[in-house]
Nucleic acid binder design. Sequence first.
DNA 1: ACTATGTTTAACATATTCGTTAATTAACAA
DNA 2: TTGTTAATTAACGAATATGTTAAACATAGT
Lengths: 112, 112
Amino acid sequence: MADDRLSVIFGALADPTRRAILARLADGQATVTELTAPFAMSMPAISRHLKVLERAGLITRSRSGQHLSSTLRPDPLQEATEWMERYRRFWDASFDRLDAHLRRAASGKDPQ
Amino acid sequence: MADDRLSVIFGALADPTRRAILARLADGQATVTELTAPFAMSMPAISRHLKVLERAGLITRSRSGQHLSSTLRPDPLQEATEWMERYRRFWDASFDRLDAHLRRAASGKDPQ
DNA sequence: ACTATGTTTAACATATTCGTTAATTAACAA
DNA sequence: TTGTTAATTAACGAATATGTTAAACATAGT
């Protein structure tokens, strides 16, 4: 994977396990052991996923004794969204087209 | 890469060449040759990138004679954004914390 | 039919990803 | 010290990603 920020962020999000971890962390910080529990996967595997998320800036980690807690830091999601915003006018255009299509269809006068 | 929709979408966005292709297509549809020109990369390489974007639903392609044009279809970006929206309250929380911190710092009364 | 142009597919090399198990490090508790 | 728990690192293997060049396929023009 390329090492520019957006590639690292999107790359981190491109794995269902990592997205599930983020979803879990939305309910509050958790240790590696707690994050491992729901998955049929070894702790080293989760540990690596956490490293990927950390590199993307999507989590921060802090040690408290033996326990290493991960906390959600969603700022990179905003960065990603901002990149996608460049295409919003195309969404709008798509919606307009869909809307127009539905109106034509509903009126029974669709020229297609 | 996992083959669920979101993984395919995020995976497609996790490459700078592919994001550049999408940016180019925001200015209108283009052929494979036209999309290859700006890159120091062979046409087969671009052809594969286009396939990845197509699989993610980010472009559609239509042949007109010899020319195979790619067109932006940004709907999947919205799907990705919708997933990220789950974390919007954390963005807001982050902003709130930042805001509060700045206000405390500005007033010279920051208890920290 | 022949040739030129546009694009994909085949075959290959290399690097990265993602998982495993085993070994190691770090912190706590007796 | 010894043992237990928490987590990472090491070493490995299999699958996937990303690029290359050469060959094949598809359409157009003469």
